[in-house]
Each structure stands twice: as C-alpha cells, then as structure tokens.
Design a protein around this nucleic acid. Structure first.
Length: 887
RNA sequence: GCCCGGAUGGCGGAACUGGUAGACGCGCUGGACUUAAAAUCCAGUGGACAGCAAUGUCUGUGUGGGUUCAAGUCCCACUCCGGGUACCA
C-alpha cells in the first residue's frame, strides 16, 4: 500500500474545513489556552519556508492542548497595510486593496495546505475598515489619555487638573497645556526624505551607509514635517519593570528591550555661566568626576546657545550650527568620525572648585538626550578625551587606576590616556566647601558628591531613558487614516466614535503629494471638511505606521465580529493573556515594545484586564540555505554549482567553491518554496522536517536530503501502521510497552518544552521498534496515531480513521504514560577506574553499595586495573555509575 | 566599543539537577532482493593503533589553564562565528 500523501492530505483538509473542526466557541467553564503566531505581512511573493516553522510549532501545541482538554484559541490573520502594495499601485495604478486581497488569498491557500488548525472564522485583516475602526478608536484613547507620574498610571484627559497659572493664560494656554500631556500629540519632527524617490522613508529603510535601501541613492535628507508622536517614554519605567514579571520570556529579548529603554541614573548639575545670569544644566552619570571637568559642551540645537555665545564668536558658531543642521543623525553619529566643535568664548564656573572652564558647542552632544549639555571630563570619558586631544584642552586625572597595568597607569596619571573604570580618587578635594572624596572608590564617590550637590542646592539625582517619543505617522496612502481634523484656527479635533471608521478615499493617483505629503493630499473631496459653523478644516494626510494594526490584533481575535466594541470585556477576561506567542526575533524590540505600551494604556483605562499581553514568548530561528562562494568571496548561484565527493565546483569555470550558509535569496537562487516541498513530499513531511531540523530557536540550513529523511520515516510509518496485517489482537510484549510508554512520557514533556526535534526522534525510535517486532496491538497502534498527530496531523487522522477510531482524533484524550511499564529491576552499571570506563555489570536495583563494591572488586576484569595498585576509594552512585579510585 | 547567544563525527543535531559523549536523521561502506537500476530490507560507521578475529588500548565536545573520584556540562583566561546596539554623557 503506497503512502499517497496528496490524497490523504486533501481529504483531511477538506474534512476539517467542512466540519469546522477547529472552530473555537466561548466556553467559560473550560480551561483556556491562547496560542498566537505573529501574523504575516502578505507579500506578493507568497509564503517562504520560514513561515511554516513558527506556524507548525504553534499548531503542534494547539493540537496537543486540545487533546489535553483545553479550549484552544488559535487564530490567523493579515498585517496587510504596508509599502509594497502602495509602490505597486504607483507603478501600475492597481489599488492596494486589490493587490492585498490577492496576496491574502495566496497566503490563505498556502497556509491551509499546511494543515494548520486555525479557526478561520476569526480571520482578521488590518486593512479591513471593521478592523481599523478600532485601531482608530484606540488612537482616540491615546489622544485622550495623559500619564500621571505620581501614580505611574495613564488616566483620562478629563481627570487632568489644570494649574491656576495655566488657567490664567486663557483658552489657548489651557489647550496647549492639555496637548502637552496627551499620549498622542502633533508636532514638528524630523523625517527621512528620499529626494530620488520623492517619498518619506521609515528609519529602517535607511541603510547604515546613509543610502535608501529601495533606490540605493544617497539623496536622503532630514525634513521637518508636522507629525503625530506617541509619548511612550512616559511608560518607560512601567515597560522596564514589567519585564521582570515576564518569567517565560527569553532573557535575550528582555535584555534587548532593557537596552532599548536605556535607563540610566546620574545627576543633573547646574553650572553658572561666567559674567551672565545663565544657569546651564547638565546631565551626568558621573557626578563624581566633577573635579576632572575641564570644559563643557552644548548641543548645536541647545536653546541657550545663542545667549551664550560672545559677540566675536557669533559668526563662527552660527556657521557651525548651520553645518550641523545639514548633517543627518547618521553623519553625526558615524563611528571613527573626527570630532568637531567651536569655542563659544564663554566660561562656566565648576561648582566644586569654582574654576572657570570653557564652553564649547559640538555635535557629539545630542539635544535629544539628557539636557543637551554636558560637563566634559576628558580624563575619564573616551569621547571627551578624543575631543580634548584634538582641541588641546587640558586633561586632568582625578582617579588613580590602582589596578591597571603599570604602563597604562602612568599614562592615565599624566593625562595621556583615558580611564573609565573604578580606582581611587586623587585631586578631588576642596577644603573651602568641605568636599573631599580622595581615596574613595567610584561607588562612594558618586554617592558623596551627589549628596553634596543636593545639600548645596546645586544639583540632584536624575534618571534618563534612551527611549524616545514614537514617531507615529507616515506620509503614505496605504495605512490607517487618523480620525482627526485640523481646523483653520489651529484646533485639532477627533472624529466622534460614531463617525468611525474613517475610510481611505478611493484614489487613482498614488504619487506622493507636494512637499512630502502623503498621496492623501490629492484626495481633495475627502480632505476638506466644514463644520456646522462654517469653519473649514482639513483631514490628516498622514496615515498610521504598520505597527499600529499589529499593536492590538491579539485582542481582536477574541471577538472579531463585534461591531459595538473592539471586544467584549467578558471574553477578554476569559482569553487573556496570550499563553504562547511565537514569532521571529526581528520583532524582539519594536513590535513587542509598542504592543506592550498600548496594552498598558488600555489596562490603565480599564479596557483590558492584564498588565502584560503575552505570558510566554518564544523566538523561532531563521531557516537559511547553503550557498557557495569562490576564494575571493564572491557568491555563486546554486544552480551553477556541481558537487563531487563532498566538494563543490563551479559548473563553468571548474573552480573549487566553499559551501557557506546564507539567507535564502533570489540572487543566490537557493530559495525553497513550500508549495514545491508539499507537492513532492507532502505537508506532513514539510512540517515534520522543519521541526526535526534542530531546536526551534536555532538558525539552521535547509537541506533537501533532510526532507527526504523525514519523508522516508513517514513512508515507513505508513507502510507499517496502515497495514492491518501488522495490527494484532494479542498483547504487546514488555519491550514494546516499555518503549511505548517512554515515548508517551518523552513526547509529552518535549511538547511542553517546545523541543519538537527530540519528540520526533522518539516517534522514529518507536516506529523502528514496531517494524522490528513485526506486529503491535490495536491499542498501541491507536496510541501511536495520537502521538504522531500533532506533528503529522493528516497521517494521524488517516490511521485513526483506519483503526475505526471515529471521525477526528482532534479531541481524543492525549495518551497517559504508566510508570509500571517504565520500571526496571536491574541496572547495567558502567564500571570505571579513575574515571575511565572499563566494563559493565548488571546489578539489581535494590543492591546496596557494599555488595556492589564487593562484586566489582572481585570481578575478573577488575583485576587488570587493580593489580599492583592501592584502592583509595570506591564511589557508587545508585543508578548512575561506579568509579574505583586507584593509585 | 558595549550587551546577548553559540562552537560536539563527513553533515543537521542528542546528552536529565556534573555520572556510559555522539540518541535520531542524512551521508558513506558492505550485504540481501533484482537481468540491471531505483525502491526496500539487513549490518557497519568519531579518529588512531594492534589483531585473522571476537576484541583490546590510546585519543576525542573551539584553544589554554583550574575545580572534582568524575567535566560537553562548573570556574578563569582566550580565539572564532552569529544577533542586537552604538558619540545616550
């Protein structure tokens, strides 16, 4: 009987589809399990083999949990807004919604061909107005929320109390005050603009060398445009501390988020500017190095800069500011770049010793972090050191690197090298103001000086975060429209909830508007609004970024058809949090941080019931492919490569090539298409292979032979288990029962730990034994079908059906292992001498140490190792090992 | 530079809280079936050495040290590879 995988897979996919086998009903009395995939962007090129990896993993867990009696929520949908469909529209005039629909259809067909147990009735699409209605609704919530730092909580804007001095400013002042507190606000911000494409780009589209990834030109500049921003830094502390509660997240992801949030503790210190009444505030993490400060730097954008500069330096400084403003952030931060700067002609007074230090302007200080001004300590900060060396500014060593190697220590003490580590302070006292930290270490120094600053009212402890406001608008057509009107008098109002969704206008011209505006600027009818009083307004032409839809989609799956509210509160309470979330590591920071941020806001507003959305997170690894390169490192497309005796040669030049592992790419011609794999080996083989390749989180290269290997296993399994001649009425022998129950135990715990590769190897071990035995009982064969089914569901169902098990095995109870079959009464002890294994002896499990020791030492084979030596001791580890130590 | 992660046969990878390294699969070798091949089945397979052989000895988890009766696993130093991030004061 042949393994006709195509027929089997079609048959069961049709069955699941028609019977809605995996439709999830709301059953509050049953334990729930919510398994989520990071939903895909449906690109035009269809599924690649990377997609099924995560999807198969979650599918295995879903099927397993169903059999374990859980009510499983396992949905799929489309993150379908995005640039490619819009660019295609610019080129061809095809509306993005048409392209999007086609792509979704392809993705759905391909995903269904994998036999994944999604509840397709819950399918969502971020471009669907019935979906983005609620994305807009959440935006309104963000707009109408402020963060109360006192209780570290988001609150409705109507609960914001207005200070009296603001009230006295009148309506406009009040409005400005309120706007300055909203989590969503509208303000000038810099964006990337590609002069070649005449389009605004996202940060991630700008490559490290400053070129635009789409067109390759370097005509990318910064432009100042009015933008929507979200005040995510207000939630920095919550987002940070929340990480500690996520016990089932990979440490690496949490570390990346911590780094991204970038909390640092230090002090703000006020410096008086000599001969002025200006106070210059700096932020430093090293207030202990104040005695070593030999100059100060302010960022070119610093608001006090113009007031600071002395007359004679005005022109030079103005020139410098101009030059800096033309540089992109990238130029400014490019490594190995020579530092630049200009002296302002002004001096500041160092509060610890009243010495005058020059104030410079330099673009290595960024306006967006801290106070935009620093005290520079070249002796103990590498950047300041570089700058000081270049401009001949004195370097004072105030910390003796007592543990450094002597040559370096000499240099540091002379100010010829920079030392940033711990040591012992020197030159750090001033008797006039009773400050002395000489001899202390870094930790005490920081503490002492900070206390001193606070006492003297010169500074205070301060905390800073690297996390910046989130630029939340894109100058694009194919995104969620903002439910916003800009009125001619400057007021911004939101649409009423009843007016949502605000749909996109139908356009024929998708070219960007003038001056960096989105194509929506062309939709004049849609754009202009007039209110009841004849006041004219204009809709927002920006749209939301792609992150918006993916920030909350896991909530919509809970109640996808609800048109009254985004989701019912009762159902939300039942299903949340997501129990298992699997996706690529590329979303470790942005998507997961943004999504956590929105969730926390919704939580504060009482809209969701949990503080964190995702209980367990797991990153699947990337699937790579073999590629080939010449000695000089140039890549050779895979179809130009011949293999001979494990070596690789260029088909045309005959040159020997190196096999390397690389990302699949069209240019390397090593892309594997899941459709092809399914046609040749079936979906079960594809699923099984992707899980068998290695640990789920590892990056691993695809090999055709590997697929053949698991295909071969499924053929063997089918040949044996689908042949009723091999299924007997008799009881299985002890060995079969033992391995069967070992398999149940191992596969169960492996699925719980997402170790699918070893679970599959156990299925193979059992199959090998069954084939060797020639017959197994019906009960055992049924158990095997159940164990196999999460991994290879089509074959699992087919066997189950063959054994007369009923309609579908999807809700059959998961097999339980019985300890009694695993019990052994003897153990084969490895006997080692001085740690080296020499031979083995069986002992009954209840044999005591003395007895084992006696038998081992008397054993014939032992004499060889004992002879002429002294037995120092004998170590017996029950059920593990015996080690005889001789000298 | 900084922060993570990794390195085990020809290849992908196993190895519980330190206790028989190399499970399972691929590849390879030999054999059976076949006119032949494919498919299938059986056996072998880290390396070196000795032996006709069963077998035996040595060696072996990136490198160098250490702890331990015992180290792939723990500690210290280093090399290489992958990911993230970068004038964040």
């Amino acid at each position: 009987m042949e393994y006709d995988f195509t027929a089997i897979e079609k048959k069961w996919q049709k069955y699941w589809d028609e019977n809605k086998t995996f439709k999830t009903e709301y059953q509050p009395d049953k334990p729930k399990f919510y398994v989520l995939d990071m939903f895909p962007y449906p690109s035009g090129s269809g599924l690649h083999v990377g997609h099924p990896e995560g999807y198969t993993a979650t599918d295995i867990v879903s099927r397993y949990k169903r059999m374990k009696g859980f009510n499983v929520l396992h949905p799929m949908g489309w993150d379908a807004f995005g640039l490619p469909a819009e660019q295609y529209a610019i080129q061809t005039g095809t509306h993005p919604s048409v392209t999007t629909k086609q792509n979704c259809d392809t993705f759905r067909r391909q995903i269904k061909a994998l036999g994944l147990s999604y509840d397709w009735d819950r399918e969502i699409n971020t471009t669907d107005p019935s979906y983005f209605k609620w994305t807009q609704w959440i935006f309104s919530k963000l707009f109408n929320t402020w963060f109360d730092p006192g209780i570290q909580k988001g609150r409705p804007i109507c609960e914001l109390s207005i200070p009296d001095f603001i009230k006295s400013l009148g309506e406009k002042g009040i409005r400005q005050y309120i706007d300055s507190k909203r989590l969503a606000y509208y303000d000038n911000a810099q964006v990337w603009w590609c002069g070649n494409c005449k389009i605004v780009c996202a940060n991630e589209e700008i490559l490290n060398d400053g070129s635009h990834e789409k067109c390759g030109t370097k005509e990318v500049v910064r432009k100042n445009l009015k933008q929507w921003m979200l005040r995510i830094p207000h939630y920095a502390e919550r987002l940070l501390t929340g990480l500690d509660t996520l016990k089932e997240w990979p440490e690496s992801v949490k570390d990346m988020q911590r780094n991204w949030i970038g909390k640092s503790t230090g002090a703000e210190v006020d410096f008086i500017v000599d001969q002025t009444d200006i106070k210059l505030k700096v932020y430093t993490t090293r207030p202990d190095t104040l005695f070593g400060a030999t100059y100060m730097v302010v960022a070119p954008e610093h608001e006090l800069l113009n007031k600071l500069v002395i007359e004679e330096k005005m022109a030079e400084v103005a020139l410098y500011i101009k030059a800096a403003s033309l540089k992109s952030d990238l130029d400014r931060t490019e490594l190995a770049k020579e530092k630049t700067g200009v002296f302002t002609g002004r001096y500041a007074i160092n509060p610890v010793n009243n010495e005058k230090i020059p104030i410079w302007v330099a673009d290595y200080v960024l306006m967006g972090y801290g106070t935009g001004a620093i005290m520079a300590v070249p002796g103990h900060d590498t950047r300041d050191f570089e700058f000081a060396k270049k401009f001949d500014i004195p370097v004072i060593c105030i910390m003796d690197p007592i543990n450094a190697e002597s040559g370096l220590r000499e240099k540091v003490l002379k100010g010829e090298a920079c030392w940033t580590e711990d040591g012992e302070y020197i030159n750090s006292s001033n008797s006039e103001n009773e400050l002395d930290i000489n001899g202390m270490n870094k930790q005490n120094g920081i503490l002492t000086i900070t206390n001193w600053l606070e006492e003297k009212n010169l500074g205070m402890t301060a905390v800073n975060y690297k996390l910046r406001d989130w630029l939340f608008s894109r100058q694009r057509y194919w995104g969620e429209p903002f439910p916003v009107v800009h009125w001619e008098d400057g007021e911004i109002t939101l649409l009423d909830n009843e007016e949502l969704p605000l749909e996109l206008p139908v356009l024929e011209n998708f070219q960007p508007g003038e001056g960096g505006e989105s194509p929506l600027a062309n939709a004049t009818d849609w754009l202009v609004v007039t209110d009841r009083n004849g006041r004219k307004g204009r809709r927002e032409t920006n749209t939301m970024p792609q992150w918006a839809g993916s920030c909350w989609y896991y909530l919509r799956y809970i109640d996808p058809a609800n048109d009254k509210v985004p989701f019912s509160a009762e159902k939300e309470k039942h299903w949340m949090p997501v129990d298992l979330y699997i996706g690529g590591a590329e979303h470790a920071v942005l998507h997961l941080l943004y999504s956590r941020f929105w969730h926390k806001v919704l939580y504060d507003l009482g809209i969701v019931s949990t503080d964190e959305p995702y209980k367990k997170l797991y990153n699947q690894g990337m699937i790579l492919a073999f590629a080939y390169e010449t000695d000089s490192g140039s890549k050779v497309p895979s179809d130009l490569v011949d293999e001979k005796d494990g070596k690789y040669f260029h088909k045309e030049t005959g040159e020997e090539l190196k096999q390397i592992v690389a990302k699949m790419s069209k240019t390397l011609r090593n892309v594997v298409n899941p459709d092809d794999v399914i046609n040749s080996y079936g979906a079960d083989s594809l699923r099984l292979y992707e899980m068998f390749m290695g640990p789920l989180d590892a990056t691993k290269p695809w090999t055709e032979n590997g697929v053949k290997g698991v295909f071969n296993f499924l053929c063997r399994a089918h040949r044996f288990f689908a042949d009723m001649n091999n299924i007997s009425n008799e009881k299985d022998d002890q060995e079969v029962m033992k391995v069967l129950h070992q398999s149940i135990q191992k596969i169960t715990s492996d699925i719980d730990n997402l170790k699918f590769n070893t679970a599959i190897s156990q299925l193979m071990i059992f199959t090998n034994l069954a084939i060797k035995k020639g017959k197994v009982s019906l009960k055992t064969a049924k158990t095997f079908a159940l164990l196999l089914s999460p991994f290879a569901p089509h074959l699992g169902e087919e066997l189950w059906n063959l054994y007369g098990g009923g309609k579908t095995l999807s809700f059959e109870p998961w097999p339980q292992f019985n300890e009694k079959f695993l019990k052994e009464d003897t153990f084969e002890y490895p006997i080692s001498f001085n740690g080296k294994l020499r031979f083995k002896i069986y002992f009954p499990l209840n044999a005591d140490r003395e007895e084992i020791e006696k038998v081992v030492l008397r054993h014939e084979k032992a004499q060889k190792w004992i002879e002429g030596k002294q037995i120092k001791k004998v170590i017996v580890v029950p059920k593990k090992i015996v080690n005889v130590v001789v000298i």
